[in-house]
Design a protein around this nucleic acid. Structure first.
Lengths: 161, 161
DNA sequence: ACGGATTGCTTGTAGCTTCAAGCATCTGAT
DNA sequence: ATCAGATGCTTGAAGCTACAAGCAATCCGT
């Protein structure tokens, strides 16, 4: 049971470098996608989810949940993607309050085009620098942390392939 | 040697949950510090660095390097902290182009006040949910990734204690 | 010691996220 | 059937970061 008010040396050695990683890794992902595709990582992830969804559509609320965005944030993002013709909004058939985000053909093409470069980046900064054993360890550590951060397991698993 | 244009199932299983963690964990840190202390995690980290520095001061360039901020970003942050009386700027003695950020007594008090709650949050979402073996694994994985992301090892290690 | 290039920092603008407020639709109790 | 509350989403304003441009001081080759 830890409880002192400051870090132990071990904690510090674990946390400080990991905090650096938290700062650097997302920036690298955004930088590559912005440079090559003019998409944020969040844009890309949302488009991927839509691309893999049944009928290429998801209710805003669902998509927000899967991408772990707030609804206002998602609404703004979808508005921008809509202005670029990558997504369109449709009123949900079952509930007139609800809006579906529907990915367009252009949107799907964009995802296909963006994916290889993004995958390569993820490999470059993470997947290719750890061993298979470490990957397994990372999956377990991640699962433990997410159990705390996202107890309902809302963040989606998709499989763009 | 991986090279297909899309993720393998294993890669997907490693990356997708970890990407969720990257989204959620920093948000949790910011939320706690903003709510309780009106500081972003970056503010807190920068103040900590200054608090631990010799003579309670660091040149802007050094501090930017340690916190992995761009100089414009740091400049804006320091301006805001300066407006709150937590930091002050002084011209560097050795090089008149350079500026030192100097933490004030109020700033040091702020760090001391903010630290316990922040440490508790980091433990809650990370340190307390992994075993000592996993902590060691995480240190090694982090080191491998940082070797790629930050080859010069600029991000600092401090010890607020 | 002079002038061009470099370095260190700041400022302004644009873009994204958050928070608060608001509108429309639906639900459930009476 | 009605209406108070809940739900789903959008909008507008405020705050933070990134990028580009600019200023001042220093360095270095001649």
């Amino acid at each position: 049971m830890t409880s002192p008010r400051f870090y132990t040396a071990d904690e510090q050695d674990t946390w400080v470098p990991f905090a650096a990683l938290l700062e650097l890794l997302p920036r690298e992902l955004d930088a590559q996608l912005l440079r090559d595709e003019d998409l944020t990582h969040f844009d890309y992830f949302a488009l991927s989810m839509l691309s893999n969804a049944d009928d290429h559509r998801l209710q805003m609320k669902e998509l927000a949940s899967m991408t772990n965005a707030t609804l206002p944030r998602l609404s703004h993002v979808i508005s921008r993607l809509e202005a670029r013709g990558l997504v369109r909004r449709e009123r949900n058939a079952a509930d007139a309050r609800a809006t579906d985000a529907v990915i367009t053909a252009d949107g799907r093409r964009k995802v296909l085009q963006a994916t290889p470069g993004h995958v390569e980046t993820v490999r470059h900064v993470l997947l290719d620098v750890i061993t298979p054993e470490q990957a397994e360890q990372l999956r377990e550590i991640t699962a433990a942390v997410l159990a705390r951060l996202d107890p309902d397991g809302r963040m989606a698993a998709s499989r763009p392939r």
